[in-house]
């Protein structure tokens, strides 16, 4: 129980630092997920009906996810220096695949009969996309966005290794002072708050998913 009480004491003493770290972390995640969503959804729409382009883009996005995070973070240092930018670029590349893949699968899953009837009533391609195909694919795209968000939250903790912000700072701070007072608590705070941030964002996104999905699509 000693561990718990010292943990709470630590959070109480460093409340403003914890809040700052969490907000920094959330900010990185928000920037990454928003840009990755815009990029991946547009890319997904463009490649969906072109098998070669679609396989190529999915493959490349898949390769990004295969490359270890520290290596990916480090590779952008020569280009943009240290700090948040290399972390954000690397996280952006990681976040593409889940959203891109779900966009493509989501658009695929729209019943051909629905598209046929939309076209048959005189909807142009843009109308079909905006009024029919995207709204129908939306729940699946949102699922992809949620996965990307969770991945980004988890990996963003190592941004601190390339000079970035976020909750990873608490883990690193604890590691460098390991054995000294409060070091253990610091690592716990960094870890727990990262997971908590992931959960909170996931809950928010699931609410958004519910609110933005037509009642006719709910099971």
């Amino acid at each position: 129980m000693d561990g718990f009480s010292s943990w709470f004491a630590y959070v109480g003493d460093h409340w403003s630092d914890v809040l700052t770290g969490t907000l920094e972390h959330a900010r990185i995640v928000a920037i990454v997920v928003v840009t990755a969503t815009v990029f991946s959804v547009i890319l997904g729409i463009l490649v969906e009906r072109h098998p070669a382009a679609r396989a190529a883009s999915l493959s490349i996005a898949g390769i990004f996810l295969t490359i270890p995070s520290l290596a990916m973070f480090a590779l952008f240092i020569p280009l943009v220096g240290i700090g948040n930018p290399p972390a954000e670029i690397a996280l952006f590349l990681y976040a593409i695949l889940p959203i891109l893949r779900n966009t493509v699968t989501g658009l695929d899953s729209v019943s051909p009969a629905v598209v046929e009837s939309a076209k048959g009533m005189g909807m142009g391609n843009t109308q079909q996309l905006l009024q029919i195909r995207l709204p129908l694919a939306w729940p699946i795209i949102m699922a992809g966005i949620r996965i990307s968000t969770l991945i980004t939250v988890g990996i963003a903790a190592i941004a601190v290794l390339v000079g970035g912000d976020g909750l990873g700072g608490f883990i690193q701070g604890g590691l460098t002072r390991l054995g000294l007072p409060n070091s253990y608590e610091s690592v716990w705070v960094g870890t727990i708050f990262t997971v908590a941030l992931g959960l909170v964002l996931d809950i928010l996104l699931s609410l958004a998913q519910r609110l933005t999905t037509s009642r006719g699509l709910r099971i």
């Binding site: 009969a113 629905v114 009837s117 939309a118 129908l136």
Partner: peptide, 12 residues
Amino acid sequence: YVIQQIGLFPHQ
């Protein structure tokens, strides 16, 4: 235009 599978828009 009416087709066999109807193709009603499920989200509307």
